[in-house]
Amino acid sequence: MIADVLSDTSTRMSKALDAAKEDFGNVRTGRANPMMFQKILVSYYGTPTPLGQLASLHNQEARTMLITPYDKGALRDVEQAIRDTPNLGANVGNDGTVIRATLPELTADRRKEFVKLVRTKAEDAKISVRNIRRKAKDELDALKSEVGDDEVARAEKELEQVTKSHIDAIDEALKRKEAELLEI
């Protein structure tokens, strides 16, 4: 039973870590990244659809993304959705078959704003991991009468190690993203 609780907790913490890394990938750096465009919602025949499902995304240059819609009829909708996306600021143009989205250079102030945003996302991920830990600790406390205090104490130490490793991984991902954002 204790092993099940710890296994489930570790899996859920790993998912929280993956979600944090995905959130970091959606924050704009000086380079064009397909992750930034994947979740842009395009009104496709009246249904909000992620851009990653409607088009292929390729880096043409460091700051230029080449977007090729699978359905040429959705070209204008895709272009408008990219143009309307806040915090992207891409210059968008199309030649009738593909869309080129060029990202402007980031100013120092804008970089600092993105660093603050990434730190907030990292703190949210840490809070999520801590909430998972708290729930697991409650589950372990409920098992005390069945397995004994010593086993629960050992499991709580293991839980703390798992929690620390996931929080350290979030901090490491944050450090890498901050360095990427501040790189000129």
Rank of each mutant, 00 (worst) to 15 (best):
I2S: 05
D4A: 14
V5Q: 05
V5I: 15
S7W: 00
S10N: 15
R12W: 03
A16R: 04
A16C: 08
L17A: 08
E22R: 12
D23L: 05
F24T: 06
F24L: 10
G25E: 02
N26M: 12
T29Y: 03
A32S: 11
N33S: 14
M36S: 02
Q38V: 00
I40C: 04
L41A: 06
L41D: 02
V42L: 04
Y44G: 04
T49C: 06
T49W: 03
P50D: 01
P50N: 01
G52I: 01
Q53E: 13
S56W: 02
Q60A: 10
Q60S: 09
R63C: 06
R63K: 11
T64A: 08
M65C: 05
L66I: 01
I67V: 15
D71P: 10
D71G: 11
A74V: 13
A74G: 09
R76Y: 07
D77W: 02
V78S: 08
I82N: 10
I82Q: 09
D84R: 14
N87A: 15
L88C: 12
L88V: 06
G89N: 07
G89Q: 05
A90M: 09
N91R: 04
N94H: 15
D95W: 11
V98A: 15
A101W: 03
P104H: 01
E105F: 12
A108F: 10
A108W: 10
D109Q: 12
R111S: 14
K112F: 06
E113W: 03
V115N: 12
K116H: 12
K116N: 14
V118N: 10
T120Q: 14
A122I: 08
A122L: 07
E123W: 03
A125Y: 08
K126T: 13
I127M: 04
V129P: 07
N131M: 08
R133I: 00
A136T: 02
K137Y: 05
D138R: 03
E139I: 00
L140D: 03
D141V: 04
D141Q: 10
K144I: 07
E146S: 13
V147N: 01
G148S: 04
D149Y: 03
D149W: 00
E151A: 12
V152R: 00
A153E: 09
Q161M: 08
T163P: 08
S165E: 13
D168H: 06
I170T: 09
I170M: 07
I170P: 11
L174T: 15
K177P: 13
K177L: 07
L181I: 15
L182Q: 14
E183D: 15
